[in-house]
Design a protein around this nucleic acid. Structure first.
Lengths: 136, 136
DNA sequence: ACGATACAGGACTGAAAGAGTCCGATTTGC
DNA sequence: GCAAATCGGACTCTTTCAGTCCTGTATCGT
């Protein structure tokens, strides 16, 4: 459907929330519960997303009471490409442009592979130009 | 998954096929069977796709024996946006940017709607710049 | 020490979309 | 009339996605 997954959408909302808090207080830390409540996003799902963002190094976590998550970098440094890569396994626009798969089933006959690679590059460039800073 | 559907992929392949034939012979007409066989694309599915492309005015059809499909415009005039619009119901990158839906469930609280609209516009511009002519 | 709070992470369900198939109807050239 | 082709509905199967549930682990405050 050519749509961003809810995971990415919620990830954007959460990162925006952290960035806003950082703007206001200098400290961007917040708990999943806070973000979930204020942004109206399902708690359990968001918890998973935050874990993945942490694994990718976009945010850091603090365990225990008074714990939470905080940004690891400036909002202007967090691109949409980065978020998508953190939250989605497959990021290629077609099977043909995937690095893991063996192109499409039209192997050797795939006549759109080249142009699709070019398009994929343009898409990635576009997504790289969009950052969390633009959500503030 | 942010991936073009197979429908769009096959549509591109088919339009490319017609365009190539037009380049070679001056006449771009071809049957579904021809395209299906030569491009290694499932016949029944492609048949549906061609019907939709016709409904959208991208190609014309000729019924009966010696029938088939032919391009209705120059390959350089057929953009990816046009193809996607013809073959997919929903084209918005998020729920928030959809015209039909009532934004997302975070109504009134959706903090990313504005920026997402801007991004959607950039995406559409990118897709408009890619045409069938670039597949030749 | 203990309990409340918060992250860590696996397993599971239900709904929706996608890809592909099958079947029948209609049109038309030879 | 027959064969080849577009039309078009209905259907199945698989995969992905969103969301939930449950258990474990860390840590702060009292």
């Amino acid at each position: 459907m050519l749509r961003l997954s809810k995971r990415v959408e919620y990830g954007l909302v959460a990162l925006q929330f952290l960035a806003k808090r950082g703007q206001a207080t200098g400290q961007s830390a917040a708990t999943v519960r806070e973000i979930s409540d204020e942004c109206n996003v399902p708690y359990d799902l968001l918890a998973k997303i935050m874990q993945e963002l942490k694994r990718d190094g976009l945010i850091s976590s603090f365990q225990g009471v008074r714990g939470g998550y905080a940004l690891m970098m400036a909002p202007s440094q967090i691109s949409l490409t980065r978020i998508v890569n953190a939250l989605e396994k497959e990021t290629s626009i077609t099977e043909c442009t995937s690095t893991s798969d063996e192109c499409c089933h039209r192997e050797g006959v795939c006549t759109i592979k080249g142009p699709m690679h070019a398009f994929q590059g343009a898409m990635e460039q576009l997504m790289s130009s969009m950052t969390v800073a633009q959500l503030l």
